[in-house]
């Protein structure tokens, strides 16, 4: 797909995110009351993001780099709508599917078959879509007849394979990838790595977080460099990667 300069699919405008950290997270009424009586409920303000703006063009792969705690995950959560920004706004021109942390939507008492549908529904797929992709998921996961067994009986490798297979039969307009996943034994690792590459080069818009500069340089069109909770640099991949390394 050709990337056109002003054809944005996502616009992040002056987004700031403030967290209020109570001295201790109060989770019981008793604590709350005693603290209130002592007037000890103080909030420490913490800005996880300060005035972050960038845009994503339709069809491009946009990289996000930065050190731990720079605000990458917070940015992704705001983009996907999980967190509401304190200030600023996000404009979305398409549906967003996050690449789930593997297995986070699983129910261990259900069979693999049932979990495919449950997990797919959580990711926002329609029943029809899942039915049409079911065989593909099953094939890719190499689970065979085990698909009709409750997944609490799976080995961890089987679980990962199933989770990966569900997570990657996506067809969203915007895909969020937090590190490239490769799981399982050597054979499956190769297969899953190839699948990820195929997904990311397949013409959908991708937001890609990684600590591997090599990957970022080879896959991304443009890169946002976050540092100290704000955008330090936002430009073409090669340029940002060169600056980041120094």
């Amino acid at each position: 797909m050709e990337i056109i300069k002003d054809d944005n699919i996502l616009k992040i405008e002056h987004v700031s995110m403030r967290f209020r950290m109570a001295n201790d997270r109060v989770t019981s009424i008793k604590e709350m009351v005693t603290l209130l009586l002592k007037k000890k409920v103080e909030f420490r303000e913490f800005w996880a993001l300060k005035d972050v703006s960038f845009d994503v063009r339709r069809g491009e792969v946009l990289g996000l780099i930065g050190r731990n705690g720079a605000g990458k995950s917070t940015t992704l959560k705001i983009i996907s709508g999980i967190l509401k920004p304190t200030e600023g706004s996000v404009w979305r021109g398409g549906n967003i599917v996050p690449m789930l942390e593997l297995g986070s939507g699983f129910d261990y008492d259900l069979t693999g078959h049932e979990n495919i549908y449950l997990n797919g529904a959580i990711l926002g797929y329609s029943k029809k879509y899942l039915q049409s992709k079911y065989d593909e998921i099953l094939d890719f996961s190499e689970l065979g007849d085990f698909i009709h067994v409750p997944i609490r009986n799976y080995s961890s490798g089987m679980l990962m394979r199933l989770a990966f297979s569900i997570a990657t039969v996506v067809n969203p307009e915007i895909l969020i990838v937090d590190e490239i996943l490769s799981v399982g034994d050597e054979n499956f690792q190769k297969k899953s790595h190839a699948r990820m590459m195929e997904l990311m080069n397949g013409g959908t818009t991708v937001l890609f977080v990684s600590h591997d500069l090599g990957q970022i340089r080879s896959m991304c069109n443009r890169v946002v460099w976050l540092e100290d909770h704000t955008v330090k640099m936002f430009s073409d991949a090669a340029e940002v990667c060169d600056a980041y390394r120094i």
Binding site: D107, D109, Y117, L118, A121
Partner: peptide, 18 residues
């Protein structure tokens, strides 16, 4: 709709599954 259907049926299935 599909998610609601899935969640409801999961809870119901799980309750007496074992």
């Amino acid at each position: 709709e599909f998610l609601i259907e899935q969640l409801v049926s999961r809870d119901f299935k799980i309750k007496y599954k074992r």
